[in-house]
């Protein structure tokens, strides 16, 4: 992922170079920063999209190299030290004199980077281990009772009165009574109808005026029951013709 450099005295990734410079294994004087920058820009141009993380990492590494180099080149680092002391108000110990301060920072950062990787491994391994979520019913304070005396009896009575008052204000409830039909009643009804009519009653006439499905079914069942009991007689003169019902005369 890192940019691969090809310089006169060094060939490899940038962070390795910084590492070597920090450890003073490579002489910064022999490294051309402009070459590094040129190669890095070429590398960035070759990437499908700009990775801010990587770009900023480069800026940081390059700045570090530049700083180390500048300190190496300058004959009197005393002025720099003073400036830095002014900038770093929070720095308690004066350890950041010359390039060493930056060098230790970088070394420290590399160390934490490595530790972060170790933590990442742990995070991944431990991510496969699950624990029980807190059961809601058992969480603290879930069923905590009110402190005694928080509610007076009179307040309770008042609350009840409010409820009762609200009830009275409500519109009167209208009751819709359910039509009560029984098989026996309907059988009697059919018999009465047949008795009042001297002529046989047609099937259609018997069912006309029935509005509910329930009554329709009960009437039909009553009809079947009367046939079974041989109380009525059903006749049909022709196929698909009208059906007539009359009392059976015994």
């Amino acid at each position: 992922m890192s940019c691969y450099l090809k310089l006169r005295h060094f060939e490899g990734p940038l962070d390795l170079l910084v590492q070597l410079v920090v450890k003073a294994e490579t002489d910064i004087q022999e490294i051309s920063l402009s070459q590094i920058t040129a190669q890095y820009l070429a590398y960035l141009a070759g990437l499908p999209e700009l990775d801010i993380d990587q770009a900023s990492e480069f800026v940081q590494l390059a700045a570090t190299l530049l700083e180390i180099k500048a300190r190496r080149v300058l004959p009197h680092p005393v002025r720099l030290r003073e400036e830095e002391a002014e900038l770093d108000l929070e720095e308690e110990e004066d350890t950041s004199s010359s390039g060493e301060g930056r060098v230790t920072h970088l070394a420290e950062y590399r160390k934490f980077k490595a530790l972060a990787a170790v933590l990442r491994n742990r995070e991944e391994a431990w991510g496969k281990v699950y624990t029980r979520p807190a059961p809601e019913s058992l969480s603290k304070g879930h069923l905590r009772s009110l402190p005694s005396g928080a509610i007076s009896v009179s307040a309770l009575v008042e609350a009840l009165q409010q409820v009762l008052l609200g009830l009275e204000e409500n519109e009167p409830v209208l009751e819709v009574s359910r039509e009560e039909i029984t098989l026996v009643k309907q059988m009697e009804h059919i018999i009465q109808r047949l008795e009042s009519d001297l002529n046989p009653v047609s099937f259609e006439a018997l069912f006309s005026g029935i509005r509910t499905r329930e009554r329709l079914i009960i009437t039909f069942l009553a009809l079947l029951e009367l046939i079974r009991l041989q109380r009525i007689q059903v006749t049909q003169q022709e196929t698909l013709g009208p059906i007539f019902i009359e009392l059976r005369l015994n």
Binding site: D53, F112, K113, L115, A116, L119, R120, E123, E124, G127
Partner: peptide, 13 residues
């Protein structure tokens, strides 16, 4: 899954 970002992990370390 909400893994920590690289920056967050470094900072945490």
């Amino acid at each position: 899954n909400s893994k920590l970002s690289r920056a967050a992990l470094e900072c945490l370390a």
